[in-house]
């Protein structure tokens, strides 16, 4: 068959020979896929997520087994509340890990120079930060769900021995446990926005932890009446209250969904400023 030898090679062969390949445009979906690969391939991210789960479960285990309360003196609602608090003990710590992680996801790119590779691959820029927020937010949410529900399943049987009964399905704890996970994911996105603004790990982490921890303390120490109104709108105060924990003082009087919106607003503001700066700054 001498004729076959003279036939042009197949399109696929020709493509391979010249190194050509099917060409796809950059899309948001592909940018998200890229950001997911980036997140899962960093040890620091994997460790942060593991830390959120392990510390949450560890603290719950510690608090539940160390508890010497007698549930028989408590009402049914108070018993559920007790178990719930033991299960969400790790959120205080988890929010700090989520904040550090959120900052590092973007500041790590600046400190290593990776951002140049990122921005040449996706020169429209805006979608990079939005994709990061989506990936970090969703992953943190899922990890925090595992942490919170797992912690509840650890606390419930241990505290049942002390006469405190709470059931995941019968008592309405699934919703607040989910909201607590949502809060951690919002904190991660808030910190991501801060990281994009300051472009430095140390500065970003300081700003994020300052806004989360120091701001509520500073406001609580101010001797004015109006500071109490402000306090309810601070990220940590609103976030904790949205799933039923009061960190400082009095309840705000806001509904849970309103408090969730307040926390989301914090993240939206830093993310928006981060996007605008990323779009217009050299780098």
């Amino acid at each position: 068959m001498t004729t076959t030898a003279t036939l042009p090679v197949s399109a696929a062969q020709a493509a391979r020979q010249t190194g050509l390949q099917p060409r796809h445009a950059v899309t948001f979906r592909r940018t998200v896929a890229s950001e997911w690969i980036k997140l899962r391939s960093l040890r620091s991210a994997v460790w942060s997520f593991a830390l959120i789960v392990l510390v949450s479960w560890g603290l719950t285990l510690l608090v539940s087994s160390a508890s010497e309360a007698d549930g028989s003196y408590l009402t049914a609602a108070e018993q559920v509340e007790y178990v719930f608090q033991a299960a969400t003990f790790g959120v205080f710590f988890g929010q700090l890990v989520a904040a550090v992680l959120g900052v590092l996801v973007i500041s790590g790119e600046y400190s290593t120079g990776m951002i140049r590779s990122t921005l040449t691959a996706v020169p429209t820029r805006t979608s990079v930060l939005v994709a990061k927020a989506l990936v970090v937010g969703v992953t943190t949410f899922i990890v925090a769900l595992i942490a919170n529900f797992g912690a509840f399943l650890i606390a419930a049987p241990l505290l049942a021995d002390q006469g405190m009964h709470a059931d995941l399905f019968r008592d309405s704890v699934a919703a607040p446990l989910t909201i607590a996970a949502l809060y951690l994911s919002v904190v991660a996105i808030f910190a991501l926005g801060l990281g994009a603004i300051v472009r430095s790990s140390a500065g970003g982490i300081a700003a994020a932890l300052g806004a989360i921890l120091l701001l509520p303390i500073a406001v609580a120490m101010m001797p004015f009446d109006w500071t109490r109104d402000i306090a309810s709108f601070l990220l940590m105060n609103a976030g904790m209250e949205s799933f039923g924990l009061l960190v400082f003082g009095m309840p705000s009087g806001m509904e849970s969904w309103q408090l969730i919106l307040v926390t989301c607003a914090w993240a939206a503001v830093t993310l928006l400023v981060g996007v605008v700066l990323l779009k217009h700054r050299d780098g």
Partner: peptide, 18 residues
């Protein structure tokens, strides 16, 4: 390049955008 990532994963992440 992010120094914490492997060469393969760096290239994979870049490739994924396209």
């Amino acid at each position: 390049v992010h120094s914490g990532r492997s060469a393969y994963n760096h290239l994979l992440a870049m490739a994924a955008t396209h």
